[in-house]
Design a protein around this nucleic acid. Structure first.
Lengths: 342, 342
DNA sequence: CTGAAAGCGCTTACAG
DNA sequence: CTGAAAGCGCTTACAG
């Protein structure tokens, strides 16, 4: 008389054990792949194994992660706190990390609003990646770390303190971009973010000023465009830079994002890239390579890969080892947008 | 002689109980806010409460979510499976859902790679939102639902079957866009996605053809632009649409995204919007309102809010109630890009 | 090769 | 007002 199932319950290991006519312990062993015997031993017999797998299959059983966690201390969860979701960078990190940690059966999930501090109070991922932190977070990070949380933090300023630090030194990287341009150009414009003026020095913008000065080059009025982090704004700024009476021969953009807008603007003005105008960005964002022409840039060669590997190994650790610092070396990538074949 | 703490362990409820000189049960009661006594009763005495709170504070205790889950069956996790992370839509859903479920102390996390099917096998969120599903997923969804998972699925075709369905009927919505344009225009161009030609009818594109035909209007050669889902591609397509010898007086774009590119293209050509060219998009994406001029569009008024509420209520449910279907009504939003003050 | 038992950190009737 | 006890679903030595 009762309905199918008032509220379907998840099958439990007990149910599988009963169905297979064995104990829960045996089910646990075959499902987790571990064996109660020593290393070499075969463990559970083949026929039992088959019966259990069979039963699990028909019951559609999968182990309760919470129950498992409580014993093992692992949640199989990797948390990615990513501030700018729209950024291609965020997507690349997410894709790389997901694939990497999946190798150990873990799942990567993204926390979008940046309040990792409160979430990590309740949830307990095997490792958490925090994509931006500074001195104001030092205490919170230390506290979390001291209660056993595995943390990987991107920061150019923070020192490791129970957590790992990933550095991405943009300023020296950007120098390489300027040096590259200065090899063949003297009249270089800069596309900066509108907040650059008030930013502390050194910044990606100050690199431009310094490099020009050191090269003994003037920066005439109108050679620097400031734009918000918005496609249209960057595009307009680039347009202004390029449509004056004596346009520059090269543009140094402080982000790949702005550089991409500059490429569009140049196309619009029917300027040839790089013959009429060379363009370089910064960050080595994945979509730079897809532009026409491909965008020259500076940035870490494989930031996502390195981060993903670090996350994977931290998540899998049985017990915490020494703090690590990894520095992503910024390299110069000369591509079509700045390269003139001689 | 031993170091501070070889590997810092998280404090446990036991430790708090000991520190406060009470039993674990009492700690549980005060920390969870629940009381062992009946509704009206005060439960734990004030002084005990204070002692416990104090102890928890100094130990930096927070309850182990896994242990809690195993008893309560709730994980306090809300999973958002979002396919297009870069989409403003994804961000809006994420923001709205995070805020909404946080009211009950839950955390929303995003699953980026769309393989919810495998993740939901292991993780058990209180509710999962799946932003795109079709008939090919029906069986998987049903299976998950039947083992107790709370699912909210966006789909125009799927019927609820142990899970909730959110519909967003674009085709009738898009008709409103065309009808709006047809009130004051006869020469209307269409900006469609390049896959539209092969898409099954009815589609956002076929709506254009049909509406034109029903209005007795011809669609001359070159009035339809097909573009990939890429800023530059959409921009170029719009440019072509607008720079012919006899440009149209209005553009119907099948997405807000394409419409925004059309706005940029029109600016570039020094066309006035909406006087020279009226533009309407579809989807009511959050950044449409921020454009100059603001983008007219069709779409659901508050998709994010409705979804967020549904997620919250599902997550909080003690036991599953009847399946729900919610249909997001597409409305017409006339804004600056199509509105001529008379 | 397999099972009985203890225990992970919590919650929740139940009895004082 | 508070505590002892059972139990959630697992894992893991340990003993057969």
């Amino acid at each position: 008389m009762s309905d199918q199932a008032i509220t379907a319950r998840r099958p439990t290991m007990r149910m599988v054990a009963d169905a297979a006519g064995v104990s829960a312990a045996t089910v646990s062993y075959v499902l987790s792949g571990r064996t109660s015997a020593g290393e070499g031993k075969s463990g559970i017999s083949d026929t039992t194994t088959r019966r259990i797998l069979q039963a699990a299959e028909t019951l559609n059983y999968s182990p309760n992660q919470a129950a498992r966690s409580i014993r093992t201390g692992k949640t199989n969860l990797v948390l990615l706190s990513l501030t700018m979701l729209s950024d291609p960078w965020a997507q690349a990190v997410s894709t790389a990390a997901s694939a990497e940690v999946a190798k150990d059966g873990r799942t990567a999930m993204i926390l979008a609003d940046g309040d990792w501090a409160v979430v990590l109070q309740k949830q307990t991922p095997d490792v958490a990646f925090i994509d931006a932190a500074d001195a104001t977070h030092a205490a919170q990070l230390k506290t979390l770390a001291s209660s056993g949380m595995n943390l990987v933090v991107m920061s150019d300023t923070l020192e490791p303190d129970g957590f790992d630090v990933v550095r991405s030194p943009a300023v020296p990287g950007c120098r390489k971009a300027m040096e590259h341009l200065l090899e063949t150009h003297t009249d270089i414009a800069c596309l900066a973010t509108s907040s650059a003026k008030s930013h502390p020095v050194p910044s990606r913008y100050s690199v431009y000023l310094d490099a020009m000065a050191e090269a003994g080059l003037d920066v005439p009025e109108g050679r620097v465009g400031f734009a918000e982090l918005h496609p249209a704004a960057a595009y307009d700024a680039a347009l202004r830079l390029l449509s004056g009476p004596t346009p520059p021969s090269a543009i140094y953009a402080v982000t790949d994002f702005a550089a991409l807008s500059a490429i569009n603007a140049a196309h619009q003005l029917h300027l040839r890239i790089p013959e009429d105008i060379a363009i370089i960005g910064a960050g080595n964002t994945p979509d730079g390579e897809l532009a026409h022409p491909a965008l020259s840039t500076v940035g870490p060669a494989d930031a996502y890969g390195e981060i993903a590997c670090l996350l994977r190994s931290r998540a899998a650790e049985k017990e915490r080892s020494a703090d690590r610092v990894i520095t992503l070396e910024w390299e110069l990538f000369v591509r079509g947008s700045s390269h003139t074949t001689t």
